[in-house]
Amino acid sequence: MSRNAWQEDRGNKDRSITRSGGGTMARGTATDVRPDTTHAFLVGDSMTGGYGTGGDILHDCTIAVDPGEIAVIVGPNGAGKSTGMKAIFGMLNLRQGGVRLDGEDITDLSPQDRVARGMGFVPQTSNIFTSLTVEENLEMGAFIRRDDIRPAMEQVFELFPILKDKRHQPAGELSGGQRQQVAVGRALMTQPKVLMLDEPTAGVSPIVMDELFDRIIEVSRTGIPILMVEQNARQALEIADRGYVLVQGRNAHTGTGKELLADEDVRRSFLGG
């Protein structure tokens, strides 16, 4: 083979458009994973990272939520759903990517600082103070606030009327669904700019689950963007404005809840047909 470019015919491409099989530029295929995060209110952008010094759990994962929206993260077990949410809340070691809230970069903030910046987080387990009364739970939720918290408490009682009746009862004595209401109410007490729920319906009965979803929609109607992780994918997607299907720490599908429910691939893989 000569190294002279003029002597090999691959250099001669002047007829490539008409010559069959002569072109080298093939068109790639696009996926439907195109989260638009440029203007999103809260976004975890191309996050890669894991716990401690262990291996990466998230791989270039992007999750975003806008005002007035309910965004839901679903996916099979071990897909990194909760991990994705913890990454946004600053409980993960990110090796790449960033988190922005309202246009501000908050990637370096501790979880407590994020709360002060207006993020409300409801962990999946032990999310209430069991030995404190319902009212005290709400007061502790508003601990960082030095102003009058009564309007916020009234608002929570309006959203969750049952809590008003049980305000002087220790939160640990309440039923599963009521505890979750306390947990959500506690997070709402800071009047957060965004609310994050980690599997709010874990371990409650189907009836209570429906009620909880209704309440979450009601919270969303007050204008707070909600980001939640859910096991019950079908029901969660039904109320979702935006859904993220994660598989092995990567964005697999993104779309509105309805789109995902209609998507053949998503249905077959995660919703049981």
Partner: peptide, 15 residues
């Protein structure tokens, strides 16, 4: 009391 009850949640609440 909140800190004694649930340390993580107390941290989350800004205590």
């Amino acid at each position: 009391r909140a800190y004694s009850d649930n340390e993580d949640l107390a941290l989350l609440s800004g205590i």
